[in-house]
Design a binder for these strands. Structure first.
Lengths: 236, 236, 236, 236
DNA sequence: CATGAATGAGTCTTCATTCAT
DNA sequence: AATGAATGAAGACTCATTCAT
């Protein structure tokens, strides 16, 4: 996401009448993320978005059918952004399924993906998902692919490692829970639960499940300096 | 939560002008939960709430300072409701810390707590938490107590079981992640991820971590009929 | 229509919070007529209407579903107002079909019905009728009843008078044309074509068609002082 | 009016950058008529007009001072179109005043003039005439000439035929009423009142007024097949 | 206590007009 | 000449809150 601050806004304006349709759309989507992160979906108005984008109000309805469409496109962008991220990381991890699973998992807690801003936006959309079919569809598509990939990798590990009683589907479900749950905790308790802790807990879990693939040392290494021992500390 | 259906609404009205302040407040809080579950926080208006409650619009501002206060009271009610539930379950579990930890965990996925309606409300509040300090405070208070209790129980188990490398705080964090993550998945994929599955996955995890306390069989038992094998199935 | 002038508006406001729903609705319909007469349908906004009514903008959407509904109700009111007027006049005309036909015809040019304000409103609706089925339905219902009545009266006169080659339907069509055409001319050329002239021309036509029922003198009497001899004079 | 269909639109575009100012103006006026006929004046935007014309939005403000001017020019075009039509018909009718009057009258109901599209546009402008002096001026100019011509012809016939009590001005007024009234009825009840019927009723009236000039047979001939006997049938 | 009509600030959306290309 | 992205004023509609009854 291009970093659009009020001062950057002026630059956008300078880009002015030349900017291509695609550029403007992305500008508005970025501004929407800023706005939702700051004011929530219900506090996000055409005015807040265009103010962040440094553009005039009329533009939202020019580049998107309406505000609702802008919100959906924003969610879609976030989903594709995330999916593209872990796909790239898996590819970069080589052929080892263990490395791939770890790469996928750690992608969730990478600063580019797991910023407070983006988490806030995600949970705003989750809140609305219950009664917005369009949101659910977008999220489900992303989750399905992620889950399927997860499942495939777990299955390979189980086969490779001869892990007797394990069920790949169970583990994929648990991983999914950890990803989402850690996200929520990072969002609500940024001082008590960090990305680093999340990665460490994730590795610990993988070490426990697939001991012959994940080195216990690694897990405990990630674990080491428990930044905030004791209570979860003050929330945001 | 009292079950407020439109037909029940009429009954409320019949209770009429004599109802005590406390009754009216609870009636409005229940209606707020209904409304948020159905329309989300942003779609919840004084009108939707009072319609669910079968009362007149003027009443919200009579019994609560304003709509915002009503929302906060609703969140507080949910938090206390949940806390009371697991406290009672722990008490009922006797003196065994393992049974207590399990009771606390399973409380999260008990139908009274983990209904689709309530989950929807929770995630609506989480969505807004980012920029509503009042919500964060209410949620944090509840979470802290839960986490502390969790931590204490894990510590006891570690001591009892002589589990070498384990760190109670790590496990409490992971449990917290599983609780929240499973909630999200139950909410978004009610057909793909059930309360039953959530309980099974939770027990599996506990078996893995505290094998000398939780019987592996139990875990696999809860695991048994994987209702929807394969893909996560259609969302809501 | 109650005469709502800006000064009267204040009185409405005084009537204030007590006014019954029916009264408020009529107040808004009256204000809509004022507004359309002054600014046309396209120039009629929620603001102009409520300003004429001396009420706040929010009220339109409280008493009517939306602005469109208010417009339809206004047209319906005008149609019913007109229909009620000629029905009453026919009744007052006794049993003579000639007197009844004349009464119906003259009703169109009675000051209560054929005011510049109301004509302006009628032709605004006619302009939109082409692509608003709702308007057409309302107008058609009124017109059908009027035409049927007209037809029946003409048939009686033909039978009574032994008018050989006449066809009641033809005459009803011609009368309908005269009513509408004279309305348009009165509206556009108030100085060149008056209600009085319209009545006179109507009677002339009736005298020509039904000479044994309508006295030629009457017609020429109504004709007498041709206020603006020569050209049609300046428009509005 | 050139027939501008979407496919023709592309051709216009092809005519492209070389088209003369006059051609572009007419193209826009034709598109305006299409647009008003379909969406009404209030629904006619720069976008609907340019879409019908197959041109870009910027052009309206390039070829006309503003949208209002385009509307006035469109009305002026319609008025001149109509005037030119009956003038040509009168000329073609030879020297007989009766034939000329009839020619003028029938011009109103000629398919080129009395199309549903054009009627719709006329009545849209009449609706706005009340508060748009510019429209009234344009309409009045056309009407005055028509009325004067009508008056002259009637005067000649009265003199020729020795019609005793007749007043040319009265008849011109009545004719004007019939023209406008029949137009309205054709527009609103295309299935119940046709151009053919309108011509027949007009001739019937002329036969009645000027029996020695207009053959009764002709009138009854035009009358003959009353397409829809009985009620006026469904509106548009 | 309770009601619900009334208020008006705030939102989304439309659209005539401008202007850099 | 022509284009169409950009602007922002103005419109319809929503809804928390007030208050007379």
């Amino acid at each position: 996401m291009t970093n659009v601050t009020p001062s950057a806004a002026r630059t956008n304006k300078a880009a002015g009448r030349t900017a291509s349709k695609e550029v403007r759309r992305q500008q508005l989507i970025d501004a929407t993320i800023e706005s939702i992160a700051k004011y929530g979906i219900s506090g996000t108005t055409t005015t807040t978005v265009t103010r962040f984008a440094g553009l005039s109000i009329g533009l939202i309805n020019f580049h998107f059918k309406n505000k609702e469409t802008l919100l959906e496109e924003t969610l879609r962008y976030l989903a594709q952004d995330h999916t593209a991220h872990w796909r790239k990381r898996i590819k970069a991890a080589g052929d080892d399924p263990a490395a791939q699973l770890r790469a996928q998992g750690e992608s969730h807690f990478h600063p580019d993906i797991c910023s407070r801003k983006k988490l806030a936006v995600w949970f705003n959309f989750y809140g609305e998902a219950q009664y917005r079919a369009a949101y659910r569809r977008i999220v489900a598509e992303m989750d399905d692919e992620r889950w399927d990939t997860s499942l495939g990798l777990c299955a390979k590990l189980i086969e490779q490692g001869g892990y007797g009683g394990l069920n790949a589907s169970d583990i994929a479900d648990t991983l999914e829970g950890l990803y989402d749950g850690f996200w929520l905790n990072i969002m609500i308790y940024p001082d008590g639960f960090s990305r680093k802790k999340a990665r460490a807990r994730l590795l610990q879990y993988l070490c426990m499940v697939f001991p012959r693939h994940f080195d216990a040392l690694e897990g405990s290494a990630g674990n080491a300096p428990s930044e905030t021992p004791g209570a979860r500390a003050a929330p945001i």
